[in-house]
Nucleic acid binder design. Structure first.
Lengths: 203, 203, 203, 203
DNA sequence: AATGAATGAGCGTTCATTCAT
DNA sequence: TATGAATGAACGCTCATTCAT
């Protein structure tokens, strides 16, 4: 057990260091040595736990996005109302990114820059998030809360809007508090579906 | 003059080849040799026209985005109505990307993957596009067509939505015809601002 | 005792695995892990029994060649006639290699490829075999069966001829049955010493 | 032309250095840097002329063995008599190896130690030499000089005998003068075919 | 203007060996 | 005895950049 724990902690140390270093320098510009140093290990140690630099980055992506996804799903679980559930998801994403700038950088900036090989994984991740929203929209349509529409398409558009706002915040630092954009985004996006009047009822 | 022309054509051949090769293989994975070969030049030839690989990519980014920006601005010039002008801009962007898949890849995928050094240039480019939309919104507000709002923020959100839709198209090929998304996007975005009723008047 | 036995069997399992894996992949291309895995041990286990990869290979060489040498000597022990004793040795070598292809690969191919450090050991081994033949020749000369000659030199030439035939069989699979070459080789080699007429008397 | 010459000389310098360094340290134990240093080039320079370490070694093998083969064929060209032609070939090989110890080491020792990937090339080379001898034997048979026999097999056996003698010389330095072994080998080998009496007539 | 040979720093990966448990 | 995590030196190869021609 202690062995497993140490092993796990080493692996976790590696992932933590990787998150820091990759987001600081970018995937391509980060030598494995830097990750080894940042995690108080040796180069060989990295390769004992991950078969390649790519695999390490992929594991980092997977585990990070899975954690975020869980958070968002947890935030959604409480809400019975489909539209409010979508709102909760939106808030959870924005809050998470605001609290974990590195995570945001990793998923929205570095993952794109890591190269052709990660496109698939990244696209998949984006779709998972978008489809979370799409399912809310589907239920809202089914419940008659909103008029029928292409929910997947709409979800992607929403998701893209959120992403870009976060991206802008990451790279310019504006607005100071990312969370402050939540009501703006919510209104902007929801109004497009339910019309202005209903939004005012909701909030 | 013929020398300059040949020089110019050589430079252009280089940029054309760079667009093709960079989008095929990604910035980091593309050796200068590949560009030289694809443009029927030599490695030295590339370095005669551009001081570095970075500079070449930057020039490609600049000239490509400038050309796109011009197209969009040209499309906007015809429209006196601010909202219709925004619509025209949107249509121009989508049409351009649909016609020049490589350009879309370059600006939306590869530029992100090229590394830290291009973030500034990329952010600037995105802002230029977003601010094009923002100015339409500003005028629409000034003209009393829409209620006052944070036009820059809204413009960025819109722009992000469009980007993500294009991105999804690039990486999954869906929908078959990117242009088909135009009415959907227009409605989605505009309704969020002017309310459902007014949109129906506009179109 | 059971501990020693288990230890001995472990050591033997290691040598057996080493023979298989080394001849499959070559000395340099074989990581210790492969041997550990093939012998159901761990890397540490290998290093408990052998101080280094080199030592393991050397032990394998020594024990394999010693076993072969014993076989050959046993085959010779029965023959009182010097020339027939040489013939028996030849037959024993060829038969052994034919039956233990891995052994042949190890001694004739991999040992050469293992690197500078094994040259001495390999040369010694070859000399031991050659000198076995040389001693037969010496006795045959002493007995007046053949005319005086440089027996060591002749023995080495014979041995080289046999080696090459085996090598060719190893790498091309021809002839199907290595044993079939025995009479050919015997005639070829013996005739060179005693002359054609006497060979026909012998056989 | 001067460019080609310089390029050729660089390539040749590389091959020369490779011959020296590979035979000094062995293929696996020789880093590319050593070859670069020995040929007054840089690592990159090596890779400009050869795509890989393997390819360099293979080129070295090919060109060296081709040169030797030519020498042997040239020596054979003068002799109309098949058996004397074989004798000439034998003398040419031994003389060449005696004069170019490095070449001998390369072809007979290092090539074997370079690893699985070179086995094919090496086997082919050996076969070419052996078949040179086989063709002499074929003609000798056709001319009725010797009794019918398996010429390919016999040629391989001869070739193996010669190889081993050279090998022994390489690794022990005995005899001092390799050329001195020529008459011994010739007698040993020829007598095996034509019988003692005829050999005495020939020489 | 153009060529392409040459440079050399840099990096991903391997693997023999060690050692705490 | 045995395990397997950890180490770190070493090496093959790449490629942006330079420069003599």
């Amino acid at each position: 057990m202690s062995i497993q724990e140490r092993s796990k902690s080493r692996r976790q140390r590696l992932l933590d260091a990787a998150l820091t270093v990759f987001t600081e320098q970018g995937y391509n510009a980060t030598p494995i040595d830097d990750i080894a140093r940042a995690s108080d290990t040796s180069k060989g140690g990295v390769y004992f736990h991950f078969p390649s630099k790519q695999a390490l980055f992929l594991a980092l992506l997977d585990e990070s996005s899975a954690a975020l996804l869980e958070k968002v799903e947890a935030a959604m679980a409480h809400e019975p109302d489909p539209l409010l559930r979508g709102e909760a998801a939106l808030r959870a994403v924005i809050t998470s990114f605001a609290e974990h700038r590195l995570l945001a950088r990793l998923l929205l900036v570095e993952a794109a820059g890591a190269g052709r090989d990660f496109n698939r994984a990244l696209t998949d991740m984006h779709e998972r998030f978008a489809m979370l929203i799409a399912s809310c929209l589907d239920e809202a349509v089914a419940a008659g809360q909103i008029a029928p529409l292409d929910t997947r398409f709409t979800a992607r558009a929403w998701y893209g809007a959120v992403n870009h706002i976060v991206l802008h915040w990451l790279q310019t630092g504006e607005p100071k508090h990312l969370e402050a954009t939540f009501p703006l985004l919510r209104d902007l996006l929801l109004v497009g579906v339910v019309g202005r009047e209903k939004v005012q009822e909701c909030s």
